[in-house]
Protein backbone atom coordinates (compact mmCIF):
# COMPACT_ATOMS: atom_id res chain seq x y z
CA UNK A 1 0.00 0.00 0.00
CA UNK A 2 2.77 2.40 1.06
CA UNK A 3 4.71 1.46 -2.05
CA UNK A 4 1.71 2.17 -4.25
CA UNK A 5 1.27 5.61 -2.61
CA UNK A 6 4.93 6.48 -3.10
CA UNK A 7 4.80 5.53 -6.77
CA UNK A 8 1.72 7.72 -7.27
CA UNK A 9 3.57 10.62 -5.63
CA UNK A 10 6.62 10.01 -7.77
CA UNK A 11 4.51 9.92 -10.93
CA UNK A 12 2.80 13.18 -9.95
CA UNK A 13 6.17 14.80 -9.23
CA UNK A 14 7.47 13.62 -12.58
CA UNK A 15 4.39 15.00 -14.32
CA UNK A 16 4.80 18.39 -12.57
CA UNK A 17 8.50 18.43 -13.45
CA UNK A 18 7.69 17.67 -17.07
CA UNK A 19 5.15 20.50 -17.21
CA UNK A 20 7.55 23.08 -15.68
CA UNK A 21 9.06 25.24 -18.44
CA UNK A 22 12.68 24.44 -19.09
CA UNK A 23 13.95 27.91 -18.16
CA UNK A 24 12.12 27.91 -14.84
CA UNK A 25 13.17 24.38 -14.14
CA UNK A 26 16.85 25.34 -14.63
CA UNK A 27 16.59 28.26 -12.23
CA UNK A 28 14.73 26.26 -9.56
CA UNK A 29 17.30 23.49 -9.73
CA UNK A 30 19.96 25.96 -8.67
CA UNK A 31 18.04 27.05 -5.54
CA UNK A 32 18.55 25.69 -2.06
CA UNK A 33 15.57 24.74 0.16
CA UNK A 34 16.20 27.89 2.18
CA UNK A 35 16.06 30.02 -0.96
CA UNK A 36 12.80 28.40 -2.04
CA UNK A 37 11.39 29.08 1.43
CA UNK A 38 12.39 32.72 1.07
CA UNK A 39 10.63 32.89 -2.30
CA UNK A 40 7.46 31.65 -0.65
CA UNK A 41 7.46 34.12 2.23
CA UNK A 42 8.82 37.06 0.25
CA UNK A 43 5.37 38.39 -0.87
CA UNK A 44 4.14 38.45 2.73
CA UNK A 45 7.31 40.14 3.94
CA UNK A 46 7.11 42.73 1.16
CA UNK A 47 3.47 43.39 2.03
CA UNK A 48 4.29 43.75 5.72
CA UNK A 49 7.15 46.09 4.97
CA UNK A 50 4.96 48.18 2.68
CA UNK A 51 1.94 48.53 4.94
CA UNK A 52 3.44 48.27 8.43
CA UNK A 53 7.14 48.93 8.66
CA UNK A 54 7.49 51.63 6.01
CA UNK A 55 4.65 53.79 7.41
CA UNK A 56 6.14 53.39 10.88
CA UNK A 57 9.55 54.56 9.73
CA UNK A 58 7.93 57.34 7.72
CA UNK A 59 5.93 58.45 10.79
CA UNK A 60 9.14 58.54 12.85
CA UNK A 61 10.74 60.72 10.16
CA UNK A 62 7.71 63.04 10.00
CA UNK A 63 7.62 63.38 13.77
CA UNK A 64 10.79 65.47 13.61
CA UNK A 65 9.30 67.91 11.09
CA UNK A 66 6.61 70.59 10.92
CA UNK A 67 4.93 68.79 7.99
CA UNK A 68 1.22 69.41 7.44
CA UNK A 69 -0.63 67.13 5.06
CA UNK A 70 -2.94 69.93 3.95
CA UNK A 71 -0.05 72.16 2.87
CA UNK A 72 1.46 70.29 0.01
CA UNK A 73 3.32 73.33 -1.26
CA UNK A 74 4.75 74.44 2.09
CA UNK A 75 8.44 73.97 2.88
CA UNK A 76 8.92 71.13 5.36
CA UNK A 77 11.31 72.12 8.14
CA UNK A 78 13.22 69.88 10.51
CA UNK A 79 12.17 70.84 14.04
CA UNK A 80 14.24 68.29 15.98
CA UNK A 81 12.58 67.18 19.21
CA UNK A 82 10.22 70.17 19.38
CA UNK A 83 7.07 68.14 18.65
CA UNK A 84 7.95 65.64 21.38
CA UNK A 85 8.74 68.43 23.83
CA UNK A 86 5.44 70.18 23.07
CA UNK A 87 3.43 67.00 23.53
CA UNK A 88 5.07 66.01 26.79
CA UNK A 89 4.59 69.49 28.26
CA UNK A 90 1.06 70.07 26.96
CA UNK A 91 -1.47 69.90 29.84
CA UNK A 92 -4.27 69.03 27.39
CA UNK A 93 -2.38 65.95 26.24
CA UNK A 94 -1.94 64.85 29.83
CA UNK A 95 -5.65 65.32 30.43
CA UNK A 96 -6.33 63.06 27.45
CA UNK A 97 -3.91 60.49 28.88
CA UNK A 98 -5.71 60.69 32.24
CA UNK A 99 -9.07 60.16 30.51
CA UNK A 100 -7.57 57.15 28.72
CA UNK A 101 -6.12 55.73 31.93
CA UNK A 102 -9.48 56.13 33.71
CA UNK A 103 -11.27 54.40 30.87
CA UNK A 104 -8.73 51.57 30.51
CA UNK A 105 -8.47 50.89 34.25
CA UNK A 106 -12.18 50.79 35.04
CA UNK A 107 -13.24 48.87 31.94
CA UNK A 108 -10.61 46.21 32.50
CA UNK A 109 -11.36 45.99 36.20
CA UNK A 110 -15.11 45.60 35.70
CA UNK A 111 -14.87 43.35 32.65
CA UNK A 112 -12.43 41.01 34.38
CA UNK A 113 -14.49 40.86 37.55
CA UNK A 114 -17.85 40.34 35.86
CA UNK A 115 -16.42 38.26 33.00
CA UNK A 116 -14.72 35.82 35.37
CA UNK A 117 -17.80 35.61 37.59
CA UNK A 118 -20.00 34.83 34.58
CA UNK A 119 -17.50 32.24 33.31
CA UNK A 120 -17.44 30.63 36.75
CA UNK A 121 -21.24 30.43 36.74
CA UNK A 122 -21.47 29.11 33.18
CA UNK A 123 -18.80 26.52 34.00
CA UNK A 124 -21.20 25.02 36.57
CA UNK A 125 -23.03 23.61 33.52
CA UNK A 126 -26.50 24.23 34.92
CA UNK A 127 -29.58 23.45 32.88
CA UNK A 128 -29.78 25.76 29.85
CA UNK A 129 -26.23 27.03 30.29
CA UNK A 130 -25.58 26.81 26.51
CA UNK A 131 -28.58 29.04 25.83
CA UNK A 132 -27.48 31.63 28.38
CA UNK A 133 -23.93 31.56 27.02
CA UNK A 134 -25.29 32.49 23.59
CA UNK A 135 -27.44 35.28 25.06
CA UNK A 136 -24.50 36.69 27.00
CA UNK A 137 -22.32 36.69 23.89
CA UNK A 138 -24.69 38.83 21.81
CA UNK A 139 -23.32 42.29 22.75
CA UNK A 140 -19.78 41.48 21.57
CA UNK A 141 -21.15 40.34 18.22
CA UNK A 142 -22.56 43.79 17.49
CA UNK A 143 -20.71 46.50 15.63
CA UNK A 144 -19.32 49.29 17.85
CA UNK A 145 -21.16 51.76 15.60
CA UNK A 146 -24.46 50.06 16.36
CA UNK A 147 -23.66 49.85 20.06
CA UNK A 148 -22.66 53.53 20.18
CA UNK A 149 -25.85 54.74 18.51
CA UNK A 150 -28.00 52.32 20.45
CA UNK A 151 -26.67 53.51 23.81
CA UNK A 152 -26.89 57.12 22.75
CA UNK A 153 -30.64 56.64 22.53
CA UNK A 154 -30.74 54.70 25.79
CA UNK A 155 -28.94 57.55 27.55
CA UNK A 156 -31.17 60.29 26.05
CA UNK A 157 -32.44 62.20 29.10
CA UNK A 158 -35.98 62.74 27.84
CA UNK A 159 -36.84 59.47 26.13
CA UNK A 160 -33.95 57.14 27.04
CA UNK A 161 -34.69 53.88 28.80
CA UNK A 162 -31.60 54.13 31.01
CA UNK A 163 -32.82 57.30 32.73
CA UNK A 164 -36.24 55.77 33.30
CA UNK A 165 -34.71 52.66 34.88
CA UNK A 166 -32.67 54.87 37.21
CA UNK A 167 -35.86 56.83 37.94
CA UNK A 168 -37.66 53.61 38.79
CA UNK A 169 -35.06 52.77 41.43
CA UNK A 170 -34.22 56.22 42.76
CA UNK A 171 -37.32 58.31 42.13
CA UNK A 172 -35.23 61.04 40.50
CA UNK A 173 -36.74 62.97 37.56
CA UNK A 174 -35.58 61.26 34.28
CA UNK A 175 -34.43 64.50 32.69
CA UNK A 176 -32.73 65.68 35.87
CA UNK A 177 -29.45 64.01 34.93
CA UNK A 178 -27.60 63.53 31.67
CA UNK A 179 -25.32 60.55 31.32
CA UNK A 180 -23.54 61.86 28.23
CA UNK A 181 -23.79 65.58 28.88
CA UNK A 182 -22.53 65.67 32.43
CA UNK A 183 -18.84 66.06 33.24
CA UNK A 184 -19.19 63.73 36.22
CA UNK A 185 -21.26 61.03 34.56
CA UNK A 186 -19.98 60.92 30.96
CA UNK A 187 -16.72 59.02 31.78
CA UNK A 188 -18.79 56.39 33.58
CA UNK A 189 -21.33 56.25 30.78
CA UNK A 190 -18.68 55.07 28.33
CA UNK A 191 -17.24 52.63 30.90
CA UNK A 192 -20.72 51.09 31.30
CA UNK A 193 -21.17 50.66 27.54
CA UNK A 194 -17.72 49.16 26.97
CA UNK A 195 -18.23 46.81 29.92
CA UNK A 196 -21.63 45.77 28.57
CA UNK A 197 -20.15 45.06 25.17
CA UNK A 198 -16.86 43.36 26.01
CA UNK A 199 -17.46 41.47 29.25
CA UNK A 200 -18.67 38.45 27.20
CA UNK A 201 -15.30 38.38 25.45
CA UNK A 202 -13.44 38.23 28.76
CA UNK A 203 -15.94 35.62 29.91
CA UNK A 204 -15.17 33.43 26.91
CA UNK A 205 -11.43 33.50 27.54
CA UNK A 206 -11.93 32.83 31.25
CA UNK A 207 -14.30 29.99 30.41
CA UNK A 208 -11.62 28.42 28.21
CA UNK A 209 -9.23 28.71 31.16
CA UNK A 210 -11.67 27.11 33.58
CA UNK A 211 -12.47 24.28 31.17
CA UNK A 212 -8.76 23.55 30.74
CA UNK A 213 -8.30 22.67 34.42
CA UNK A 214 -8.17 18.84 34.62
CA UNK A 215 -10.90 17.25 36.74
CA UNK A 216 -8.43 14.99 38.56
CA UNK A 217 -6.99 17.99 40.40
CA UNK A 218 -10.41 18.80 41.85
CA UNK A 219 -10.92 15.10 42.63
CA UNK A 220 -7.63 15.05 44.53
CA UNK A 221 -8.69 18.19 46.44
CA UNK A 222 -11.98 16.52 47.29
CA UNK A 223 -10.10 13.51 48.64
CA UNK A 224 -8.09 15.95 50.76
CA UNK A 225 -11.43 17.42 51.95
CA UNK A 226 -10.49 20.92 50.73
CA UNK A 227 -13.26 23.49 51.16
CA UNK A 228 -14.88 25.20 48.14
CA UNK A 229 -13.09 28.42 48.93
CA UNK A 230 -9.76 26.59 49.26
CA UNK A 231 -10.35 24.85 45.92
CA UNK A 232 -11.16 28.14 44.26
CA UNK A 233 -8.23 29.98 45.79
CA UNK A 234 -5.59 27.24 45.36
CA UNK A 235 -6.67 25.56 42.13
CA UNK A 236 -9.20 27.49 40.03
CA UNK A 237 -7.76 30.97 40.28
CA UNK A 238 -4.04 30.14 39.85
CA UNK A 239 -4.75 27.80 36.94
CA UNK A 240 -7.08 30.24 35.20
CA UNK A 241 -4.80 33.20 35.89
CA UNK A 242 -2.78 33.03 32.63
CA UNK A 243 -6.07 33.15 30.71
CA UNK A 244 -7.36 36.06 32.77
CA UNK A 245 -4.08 37.88 32.19
CA UNK A 246 -4.35 37.23 28.47
CA UNK A 247 -7.86 38.69 28.46
CA UNK A 248 -6.58 41.74 30.35
CA UNK A 249 -3.80 42.15 27.78
CA UNK A 250 -6.18 41.98 24.82
CA UNK A 251 -8.70 44.35 26.37
CA UNK A 252 -5.96 46.69 27.58
CA UNK A 253 -4.48 47.09 24.11
CA UNK A 254 -7.92 47.47 22.53
CA UNK A 255 -9.12 50.04 25.03
CA UNK A 256 -5.92 52.03 24.96
CA UNK A 257 -6.71 52.80 21.33
CA UNK A 258 -10.48 53.08 21.82
CA UNK A 259 -11.96 55.50 19.31
CA UNK A 260 -15.19 54.49 17.58
CA UNK A 261 -17.50 53.95 20.50
CA UNK A 262 -16.38 57.03 22.45
CA UNK A 263 -16.70 59.14 19.31
CA UNK A 264 -20.25 57.95 18.77
CA UNK A 265 -21.29 58.32 22.39
CA UNK A 266 -19.73 61.60 23.48
CA UNK A 267 -17.36 62.73 20.73
CA UNK A 268 -14.85 63.32 23.52
CA UNK A 269 -17.19 65.71 25.33
CA UNK A 270 -18.62 67.36 27.27
CA UNK A 271 -15.74 69.75 26.72
CA UNK A 272 -12.78 67.40 26.68
CA UNK A 273 -13.93 65.22 29.57
CA UNK A 274 -13.96 61.94 27.64
CA UNK A 275 -11.40 62.88 25.03
CA UNK A 276 -9.23 59.76 25.10
CA UNK A 277 -5.79 59.79 23.49
CA UNK A 278 -6.93 58.36 20.17
CA UNK A 279 -9.52 61.10 19.73
CA UNK A 280 -6.91 63.75 20.49
CA UNK A 281 -4.63 62.09 17.96
CA UNK A 282 -7.35 62.09 15.30
CA UNK A 283 -8.11 65.76 15.96
CA UNK A 284 -4.46 66.74 15.69
CA UNK A 285 -3.92 64.67 12.54
CA UNK A 286 -7.13 65.14 10.58
CA UNK A 287 -8.83 68.24 11.94
CA UNK A 288 -5.86 70.48 12.68
CA UNK A 289 -3.69 68.77 10.06
CA UNK A 290 -0.57 68.92 12.25
CA UNK A 291 0.92 65.83 10.65
CA UNK A 292 4.41 66.13 12.15
CA UNK A 293 3.05 66.80 15.62
CA UNK A 294 0.50 64.00 15.44
CA UNK A 295 3.15 61.58 14.14
CA UNK A 296 5.21 62.34 17.26
CA UNK A 297 2.13 61.75 19.42
CA UNK A 298 1.44 58.46 17.63
CA UNK A 299 5.03 57.34 18.21
CA UNK A 300 4.77 58.18 21.91
CA UNK A 301 1.52 56.19 22.17
CA UNK A 302 3.04 53.31 20.24
CA UNK A 303 6.11 53.18 22.48
CA UNK A 304 3.92 53.38 25.59
CA UNK A 305 1.61 50.54 24.51
CA UNK A 306 4.47 48.45 23.15
CA UNK A 307 6.56 48.94 26.30
CA UNK A 308 3.71 48.22 28.70
CA UNK A 309 2.60 45.19 26.67
CA UNK A 310 6.14 43.80 26.70
CA UNK A 311 6.46 44.14 30.46
CA UNK A 312 3.06 42.54 30.84
CA UNK A 313 3.88 39.62 28.53
CA UNK A 314 7.01 38.92 30.59
CA UNK A 315 4.87 38.85 33.74
CA UNK A 316 2.39 36.59 31.97
CA UNK A 317 5.17 34.17 31.02
CA UNK A 318 6.38 34.06 34.62
CA UNK A 319 2.85 33.22 35.80
CA UNK A 320 2.59 30.47 33.19
CA UNK A 321 5.90 28.94 34.26
CA UNK A 322 4.83 28.73 37.91
Amino acid sequence: MAQAKSSILERSADKAAALTPARMSRSIKGLSDRAVAWWFIAPTIILLLAINIFPLIWAVKLSFTNYKANRLNAVVKDVGLRNYERILTDPDIWLAMQATAHFVFWTIFLQTLIGFALAYLIDRKFRGHAFWTTIILIPMMLSPAVVGNFWRFLYQPQIGLFNYIVTFFTGAEPSSFQMLGSVDLAPWAIVIVDTWMWTPYVMLICLAGLRSIPDYIYEAAEVDRASNWRRFWSITLPMALPFIMLAVLFRGIENFKMFDMVTLLTGGGPGSTTEVASITLKREAFEKWRTGYSSAFAIILFVAVFGLANIYVKALNRVKQR
Binding site: R71, G181, V183, P270, S272, R283, K288
Partner: peptide
Protein backbone atom coordinates in the same frame (compact mmCIF):
# COMPACT_ATOMS: atom_id res chain seq x y z
CA UNK B 1 -6.72 81.95 7.13
CA UNK B 2 -5.07 78.91 5.52
CA UNK B 3 -4.73 77.58 9.08
CA UNK B 4 -8.46 78.01 9.72
CA UNK B 5 -8.92 74.33 10.64
CA UNK B 6 -6.45 74.59 13.53
CA UNK B 7 -7.93 77.91 14.63
CA UNK B 8 -11.45 76.50 14.56
CA UNK B 9 -10.50 73.31 16.41
CA UNK B 10 -8.92 75.39 19.18
CA UNK B 11 -12.02 77.58 19.54
CA UNK B 12 -14.33 74.56 19.56
CA UNK B 13 -12.36 73.07 22.43
CA UNK B 14 -12.08 76.21 24.55
CA UNK B 15 -15.75 77.15 24.12
CA UNK B 16 -17.09 73.66 24.78
CA UNK B 17 -14.86 73.33 27.82
CA UNK B 18 -16.25 76.57 29.23
CA UNK B 19 -19.90 76.47 28.15
CA UNK B 20 -20.83 72.80 28.38
CA UNK B 21 -18.17 71.31 30.67
CA UNK B 22 -18.14 74.27 33.10
CA UNK B 23 -14.36 74.50 33.02
Amino acid sequence: EPAYAELLAAMQKRLHDYIVADK
